[in-house]
């Protein structure tokens, strides 16, 4: 489902060349829950941006659900992002001028679903995160935890195969953080790949796999630098 092979990302300016990621290889199968950790500036966000097709990679191969993303133009990347990936951001990134219904509706409109289909998906997603009764509310009327649940509803409304979460509990208190993590675990249990970028060791400990990035180099904390095979595949091989 998710394969990165020797992926690198270099940011170039006139004066400086920064290697944000170096030869990162990672394979994640359906149903896995992966935590990506590392200090600030280590390359975690760059990894997330490349995994989420928000930035282009400089070198290597990245295949998402069998599609080599490097060959795609901007439109095709947008389409693939819309269909396959759900995002949960640290600062929620809800659109303040839209109510919850319209916020969850945003990716579905870009998907081209009809009105009835969109309504069904929005109601189902908000039901799943426990906010079905608040569709007409605006983000500013919700707590941080509730806003993050709306963001999760928006991420899952399109049934993505991959859910990328960037410090999803970073702006929440511990109680709300636990609720959000529980929600992400439920989604993972239903088959969605969850890759979560976090500073929090407690959150990372709840993931099946831990990938640590330092200076753009990724290391599987259980298996060393060569991060290629997922646990399930490795288990089968052995």
């Amino acid at each position: 489902m998710f394969q990165m092979q020797d992926v690198s990302k270099v940011f170039r300016t006139e004066m400086v060349e920064t290697h944000a990621l170096r030869d990162l290889s990672l394979e994640v199968k359906e149903g896995e829950f992966v935590a990506v950790t590392g200090p600030s500036g280590s390359g975690k966000t760059t990894f997330l941006n490349i995994a989420g097709l928000l930035e282009e990679l400089t070198g290597g191969v990245y295949k998402l659900d069998g599609v080599d993303v490097k060959a795609l133009d901007d439109n095709a990347r947008s389409k693939l992002r819309n269909e396959k990936i759900g995002f949960v951001f640290q600062s929620f990134n809800l659109i303040p001028d839209l109510n919850l219904f319209d916020n969850v509706d945003v990716p579905l409109r870009y998907r081209g679903f009809g009105r009835a289909e969109r309504r069904k998906r929005i109601e189902s997603a908000l039901e799943r995160v426990g906010l079905a009764s608040r569709v007409k509310h605006y983000p500013a009327e919700l707590s941080g935890g509730q806003q993050q649940r709306v963001a999760i509803a928006r991420a899952i409304a399109g049934d993505p195969k991959l859910l990328l979460a960037d410090e999803p509990t970073g702006n929440l208190d511990s109680q709300m953080a636990r609720e959000v993590m529980q929600l992400l675990e439920e989604l993972n249990a239903s088959g969605t790949i969850v890759i979560i970028v976090t500073h929090d060791p407690e959150i990372a400990a709840r993931a099946q796999r831990n990938v640590h990035i330092v200076d753009g180099v990724a290391t599987d904390l259980e298996r060393g630098p060569a991060l290629v095979k997922p646990k399930a595949a490795e288990a089968k091989a052995s």
Partner: peptide, 12 residues
């Protein structure tokens, strides 16, 4: 940026 991340094309 969020709209783009959620699947909007430049044309959208």
């Amino acid at each position: 940026g969020v709209r783009r991340a959620l699947g909007a094309t430049k044309r959208d």
